[in-house]
Design a protein around this nucleic acid. Structure first.
Lengths: 207, 207
DNA sequence: GAAGATAGTAATTGATTACAATCTTTTATG
DNA sequence: CATAAAAGATTGTAATCAATTACTATCTTC
């Protein structure tokens, strides 16, 4: 059963949730910075003024969107990491989960990027920053664990490897924007991670 | 001698050049999509209306900006590639040149990203797309050459390695946006490329 | 040094923006 | 079935946007 986004007179909480979804949908199609409240309302089959019954202002709405994104992505990642004890496998599952999430919500990385670009320190920007810090922490911990287990190269620059991990996702996002096709990401994800793994793995010297 | 950006009554060509520079400067500070013609004019010590003496509309200005970016980046890269015969060294120099360019013009990657996000097929967007295609071609050619010479792993997925290359730059850009500091990029560039090189290099079996 | 060309100013346009006030409909509850 | 509260529609406002206007200042050239 799909969440019905066209029904009217939703309870406030549901309406807020539907609004967040609408914003992320729109962010998949255009620059998040130029999404207007009128567009959001139109997408929801609602009048523009009605939005402000559920959010005090646009910034508050944006904050809700970022909170939803952070919770969703980190939640998915943590769930997937917990299924395995192998750090390398965990990284692969984490990457796959991230790509899957981005493929389902192409607006997500664009919202992140757009928020980080804002010069003023808004609440939404702060959420994006801490969210990415948490993300990097997860990657860093897995890498450190792998180094401890002798699976990952002990001389690895963990900071660089974290940047590369996030960069892979960004690279795939860019590629899909050039191609104008989100599906491209899914096809390139596997070989991309294989290349990453090849770069960080401990070399086997007794062969 | 520096180009004076504050003098009035500049010849049209110079004024257009100065305008492009002003836009890229502004793009370093905020989301390019929300740069207004009034802001651009203010930065140039000019009235807003005067801009439209040199550009028929805002789109034309943005097209000029993208053309400048594409010419600058590809020019730098081609110049640097030509200095060496080694594909791996060429890739490293290319990466360094790109990072150096982005560090000097932080607005550049943001403009690119913002343009690619636009839903309508504008001239500026088309320039960004072809520019990135040319960029990928350069990376792909160097990788293929390296594979031919036995330096790079013959089983390498060239497409994935190209995505990763661009992703590295994007990853550094994101990191610098989180930190709010452009200098971070330069410090992480070297170990990042080392990690990349480790992933694509041909393994030495006789050791 | 006049004359034409070029560059810039200041004010204004209609469209669009986030947001607010008021009125109407729908829903929940006893 | 009455009624209050919640949700939405309608209408409006002040600010801001890209773009245009009529006009002025400054160069260039013969």
């Amino acid at each position: 059963m799909k969440t019905n986004t066209t029904i009217k007179n939703l309870p406030a909480e549901q309406r807020r949730a539907v609004t967040v979804e609408a914003v992320i949908e729109l962010a998949a199609e255009k620059n998040p910075a130029s999404i207007t409240t009128a567009e959001i309302a139109e997408r929801m089959q609602l009048t523009q003024g009605a939005l402000f019954r559920h959010f005090p202002n646009k910034d508050a709405l944006w904050q809700s969107v970022m909170e939803w994104l952070a919770a969703q992505l980190l939640g998915r990642i943590d769930r997937v990491i917990a299924t395995t004890g192998s750090p390398l496998e965990a990284l692969e599952l984490m990457f796959a989960a991230h790509i899957d999430f981005v493929a389902k919500h192409p607006g997500a990385p664009r919202m992140m990027f757009a928020e980080l670009q804002r010069p003023d320190p808004t609440a939404a920007k702060a959420i994006a920053q801490t969210m990415l810090r948490h993300y990097s922490d997860r990657v860093g911990k897995l890498l450190a664990k792998g180094m401890g287990e002798g699976i990952i190269d002990p001389d690895l620059d963990v900071a660089a490897a974290s940047v590369m991990f996030i960069g892979m996702v960004q690279g795939l996002v860019m590629q899909s924007m050039i191609a104008g096709d989100i599906a491209v990401m899914l096809g390139n994800a596997k070989p991309l991670f294989a290349l990453y793994a090849r770069g960080i793995k401990q070399r086997n010297h007794e062969r």
